[in-house]
Design a protein around this nucleic acid. Sequence first.
RNA 1: GGCCCCAUCGUCUAGUGGCCUAGGACGCCGCCCUCUCACGGCGGUAACACCGGUUCGACUCCGGUUGGGGCUACCA
Length: 487
Amino acid sequence: MTVRTRIAPSPTGDPHVGTAYVALINYCFAKKNGGKFVLRIEDTDRARSTRESEAAILDSLDWMGLSWDEGPDVGGPHGPYRQSERSEIYREHVKKLLDAGNAFKCFCTPQRLEEMRAAQRASKLPSRYDGLCTSLSAEAIAKNEAQGVPYVVRLKVPAEGVCVVHDMKRGAIEIEWSSVDMQVLMKSDGMPTYHLANVVDDHLMEITHVFRGEEWLSSAPKHLLLYKYFGWEPPQLLHLPLLRNPDKSKLSKRKNPTSILFYKALGYLPDALLNFLGLLCVMPPAGEEMMDLALMTDRFTIEHVSLGGPVFDVAKLDWLNGRYIRERNDLDGFLAKVQAWGLDPVRLRRIAALAQPRIERLSDLGPLLAFFFSGRLDVTAEELRSSKLDDAALRKALQLATWGFDALSSWETGEIEAVLKGVAAAVDVKLRDVTRPFYVAITGSATSVPLYDAIEILGRDIVRERLRHALKVLGGVTSSELKEWQK
RNA sequence: GGCCCCAUCGUCUAGUGGCCUAGGACGCCGCCCUCUCACGGCGGUAACACCGGUUCGACUCCGGUUGGGGCUACCA
């Protein structure tokens, strides 16, 4: 049997370094065993999935040198590779489950479910669907459907016994069926949930090994149950540890840059970033930690995938990136990389347009534009402070802007301006008064090129990082402030 | 709270019962090189979470404790 692995990102945000890490492991295992590596887009969340995100994820994985044998862009024998285009397949499979009595229609309203969970929480019981709709008569179901009452389809779960999940590294894991929820398999909009789609697709796409994040471990019983209901052989499972922040919590963009785009924007080389991720799952040759993809593939073994959640150590990434810059490039190669990174004609033209009206000598460009070619700016609290806002209001403004920017679906000056206007209103000062500290935080100076353009050109990731830094030098935000401002 | 996973220097890790007075790498410190800095070279700092077993012998096996993490959605 041919080994087939997959990476199945959800296009609901920026391409995450964790996705690249999981992809790398799946890639290495497939290639090492002469198999295929498949890319599938899990866009069953209609509200959050976007084509822009999908494109960014594909571009980023490609940028890092991870190529797939089958996927939405290159096609393949098991397509389509985008779940939103496979609705009919899921519908058929849900029908099979329903007909066999392995799933049931649930007409409970979100309100009832919420009340149910609140009651369960109050009495300290595990949160789990109470099974009300499992006892609905055929007539009641028909009546509801005739009236057009929206419903979901839920998985029937054994009342007792244990499910044994075989993890390739952790061995047998026992989970009580009584702790497994009657998961929604098909949402009221007719789209499947991850749980259903992932099982159906992995089977149909003949995936033999599933290496995925540890966050899926506790839902593995649901997946195994589906394989059983369908009469299919489940793939081998291996749950990978989650990448961590320095404080050991799950790597999150709230605390650290997580987007591959950020690392690209800062001038990390794709080979270095990939090598760095490889150090977390491949044992390098003695005395040498530089590895290209071919070497990592060759050396990959699941025995050397460690289970402890690794901290994403930027200092080590920096060291490795430095080595790639100086050891893997002659001067011409280095120059080409510099040009590709910072002297992209389109970007440069936009920047030049901002600078031209504001300079008297070309040599004014350096100080005026340095912030476009920098990572973190070493801005101090003194520089950020303004007479119009006290520290608390200043922090609130920065935090609200961070949230506002994160929520933007499109990154362009109009939207950016709207966020800042909202922030000004929220802290009750004129726009120009709230804007000043943002100039400092983002451009490093209170006098600079237009802010909205600068923000747009710098990109979401660097802006988030600079706002985070500003917040940090101002003493950070307390959790009570966070709660208060969220309103 | 409940369920589950994990546990070697600050960080990434080697180590699969004796080879371990625990090895490497990053970071940090010192020295050398040197017009500065960086690079490079050399040296140093620093860990088996704890408590019980099993064993002639535990970093390695088992149990408990502690700590960390994940899940607990009509998100993935």
